[in-house]
Amino acid sequence: MTALLEVTNITAGYGDGPAILDGAHLTVVPGKVHCIIGPNGAGKSTLLKAICGMLKIRKGDVVLKGERLNGLRPDQILRKGICFVPQERALFPKMTVRENLRMGGFILGNAKELDRSVDAILDRFPILRERANQHAGTMSGGQQQTLAMARTLIIRPDIVMLDEPSLGLAPKIVQEMFSIMKMMSEEGVTVLLVEQNALMGLKNSDIGVVLDLGRTLIEGPAADVLADPRIQELYLGGRKAA
C-alpha cells in the first residue's frame, strides 16, 4: 500500500535548543490506526508537533501524498488535511460544544457548509448533541476528549493526530475513545496517536511505532511490535521510563 504521509529522518527541536528528534521516521498508510509509543521524553509529542508545523524541521522531509510540507505553518498544514489534537485537548472551555465544533471548521469560511458539517457531527455523537449548548469546560474528561476528536472531523481531514487521548481517563472511557478512533479509521480518516500505555495502545492499533531518544526504533504491524523483544527490554527491563 502506498504511504499517505511519509516522514523521513527528521531532525527538529525547540527554538535554537538541541535537536530533540534526530532520525525519526514514520510511514503512515491510509485508513489505519497508528500508535507511537516510547518512554517518557522520547520525543513522541515533539514528533507530532513537527509534523503539524509547530516546530521547524531542521533536516529530513515530511511528505503528504507526494507534496512536501516542510516549512508550512500549522494552519496551512491543517488545510492540507492533517488535524492535530494536542495533549491538553485544545478546547475552548467557555464556548459551547456547538461553538467548539464551529471553531473546528474555522478555516472553512462558508457558514452554511459549516453549519451542515456541525450538524452531521452532532448526529453522529449523541452525547455531544445532548450537550450542544453546554460550555465545553463543564463536561467530563471523556466527553471533552470525544469533543476534541469529533471536532477534527468537521473539515474531513485525511489524518488526525492525537497526543495521549487516554490521558486522565478511566479505563472504560479509554475503550470508548479507542472505538471512536476505530470508527474514524473505518470511515477513511487515518489515525496517528501517541500512547503512554504501550500495551493498550498497540492492542488497539494496526501499526506500531517505537520512538526512543528522538529516533524511530521499530516500525511495523502492531502485533509484531508487541512481540518484539526490544519492547520487553524498553518497558520491562533495562532503562526505566523517566
Partner: peptide, 9 residues
C-alpha cells in the same frame, strides 16, 4: 486558548 485557536487556523 490562544494556542488552540492558532492550531485551528
Amino acid at each position: 486558548n490562544r494556542d488552540a485557536a492558532e492550531l485551528l487556523g
